[in-house]
């Protein structure tokens, strides 16, 4: 129940935060939030830490979970940084 409470608050917070982002920055916003959704990497690591005995398939699936989540994290942050590095102000700064 407490977790649902946290969930509900986070959704409202997200709505508040994102509504303020101008359409100019929507592409980096998407790739950046994409990187955040790579937080499943934490779930993947925890799943690997709590492996049940026996089935060799489970660690393999856990490994694949880490791989795909890391693609999201590393790829997402790097590509967002690359994009945002291109946004330049008239005054020459970033």
């Amino acid at each position: 129940m407490e977790l649902l409470f946290v969930f509900a608050l986070a959704i409202f917070l997200g709505v508040e935060l994102i509504t303020k982002v101008p359409s100019q920055l929507h592409t980096p916003l998407m790739s950046g939030s994409n990187a955040i959704s790579g937080i499943t990497i934490v779930g993947a690591v925890i799943a690997l830490q709590n492996l049940p005995e026996g089935n060799i398939m489970i660690p393999i699936i856990g490994f694949l979970a880490v791989v795909t989540a890391t693609v999201n994290v590393i790829g997402g942050y790097l590509v967002t940084d690359r994009m945002l590095g291109m946004f330049k102000s008239k005054k020459g700064g970033e």
Partner: peptide
Amino acid sequence: GFIISNTVLIVSGALVGASGIIL
């Protein structure tokens, strides 16, 4: 996040979920 009762997954997942819906 709910499977493993992990708050950081729940919070960040919800943030991304909200962001996508708004867009």
